[in-house]
Design a protein around this nucleic acid. Structure first.
Lengths: 217, 217
DNA sequence: ACCTGAACACCGTTCAAGT
DNA sequence: ACCTGAACACCGTTCAAGT
């Protein structure tokens, strides 16, 4: 009876499944979220979608390519959350720190997904251009924000990319240790992030630079 | 003919292989180093040691336990290199920065080993007490050094563990990004580490604290 | 105590065949 | 074009049996 909803469309495609690629990515992410990367099997996600276990190979070269797809979407979501934090925070220093908090929050809220993005399951050699582009996009959000702060002389005038990589390393380090369970109370991931932002601030403030220069001579 | 070298010992142990546990750990690490963690198979390391592929289960509960053993030895080596850098550097601020460099150098020189230690292959729940202890020992080297710097009023008087975790996050973040190939030139892992140490310094110097306080009011 | 060999239940991937 | 089903070469792990 719901046949009528299809009547207006093109002639029945006997095998379709709407968008199998989309379904595979969603199901893979759901499984990873629930059981971790090591719990992901192509056979089970095929079964869960009511599809042969080899149907996947029409949409992905192999399992690694599927994981690369999951990682790609992770970088996209991360970038969106970073940009949202930056803009909603008012594009100033407070907004920048809000970005850092958002970064760590994403990682802690999606530990398995984050691990797919950074755990070495996908190598960033040029093989996956979409993944490379999306990862670069997320990093660019950080660079853009930092450049804006530099324009207003809020942070040091160092090489922007270098400074951005440093900030990235800090939040990535906090996130990774948190995910690994290496930050038991007291001083869990949230308190450490708060502290890291404080230390980061006095480490990159433009005002600090002048007084640092003066003291050193 | 080399039978005589065994004559002086206890009666022949027909199955021995010296210390199979030791051999398994060495062979596992060699394989991981050469082919990555995902290239490690119990069958092959058994074959390489001229031993049945189930002999391993006399010494390790399962594959995870073997990996935990490899990780444990990684933390031991890391601690030794950190302590060596600290002591040979003269136990001062320069020595502390030398420790940071040694940390990143270890990770970059042994990427696959480092990933076994931090890649989520072993979970730090109380299941592996030896691993937990060795990881804590490596971290303690950092805490001890920081405490010494605090005693000489070289760095801020903040909670030592919190400060140590922050420094750990920084070097861990730099190391991880470097291993993942996320730090292409310019500004590779070495230059970033140099920059990170600079920013870290003006972030934790005791002198900075006073001037920071003054400026804020 | 330590090791073996066969067996079990799984896996990713290939490929000829179907619609 | 897209999907299937059988088959292949692998895997970690168990367990009764050997010495």
């Amino acid at each position: 009876m719901p046949r009528s909803t299809r009547a207006a469309r093109k002639p029945d495609r006997p095998y379709h499944h709407g968008n199998l690629r989309r379904g595979l990515l969603d199901e893979a992410l759901a499984t990873i979220r629930a059981e971790g990367v090591e719990g992901l099997t192509l056979r089970e996600i095929g079964a869960r979608l009511g599809v042969s276990r080899t149907a996947l190979y029409r949409h992905f070269a192999d399992k690694r390519a599927l994981l690369a797809g999951v990682a790609t979407e992770g970088f996209r979501t991360l970038r969106q959350q970073l940009v949202a934090a930056w803009e909603e925070g008012g594009r100033g220093r407070a907004a920048f720190e809000s970005m850092g908090a958002a970064y760590v929050r994403f990682a802690v809220a999606n530990p398995s997904h984050y691990r797919v993005m950074f755990g070495g399951f996908v190598n960033p050699k040029a093989c996956e251009p979409e993944l490379t582009a999306e990862a670069a996009g997320a990093f660019q959000a950080l660079v853009d924000a930092l450049a804006a702060l530099q324009r207003d002389a809020i942070v040091r005038g160092d090489d922007t990319v270098k400074m951005a990589r440093f900030v990235w390393a800090v939040v990535h380090g906090v996130a990774m240790l948190g995910i690994d369970g290496q930050l038991p109370e007291p001083c869990g991931v949230e308190e450490l992030m708060r502290y890291a932002l404080e230390r980061l601030r006095t480490g990159i403030d433009a005002a600090e630079r002048a007084s640092g220069r003066r003291r050193r001579h």
